[in-house]
Amino acid sequence: METIFQLIAIIAITVGTFFSIVGVLGMVRLPDVYARLHATGKVGVFGVVLLLVAAVVWTPLGWARALLLIALLMVAGPVVAHALSSAAYRIGIPMKRPVRNDLEQK
């Protein structure tokens, strides 16, 4: 049982770290504010959630706190992305090479 938990934790840490790195890479590589928020708002949250999953199965003490944090992060991540993108659009930051923009025609 102990070994299985350790295995799960190791996998979660590895994958979580990978996705956190991808989040940072996306922040650098993607072209504009809106696309970058996809990387930070979702992939970044996903990475942290996986690290917390590792904390849940690894440490016996902090599991309730970690579950609560996962729930709060899943609520907060998209809301932050939404708020930032909305603010960016309102002050008129343009998209780079948009294929289509329904909001413009409104």
């Binding site: 990978f18 996705f19 991808v22 890479l25 996306g26 590589r29 993607l30 072209p31 504009d32 809106y34 696309a35 996809h38 990387a39 979702k42 992939v43 949250v45 996903f46 990475g47 959630v49 899943m74 998209m95 780079k96 090479r97 948009p98 294929v99 289509r100 923009n101 329904d102 909001l103 413009e104």
Partner: peptide, 24 residues
């Protein structure tokens, strides 16, 4: 959340960056 993480990771890691951004 899982699927979107994998999808965005694929876009970010591919060298040609295959995106057609837009607002619908």
């Amino acid at each position: 959340l899982l699927v979107s993480g994998i999808q965005v990771a694929r876009i970010v890691l591919s060298p040609s960056m295959p995106i057609n951004p837009g607002i619908i």
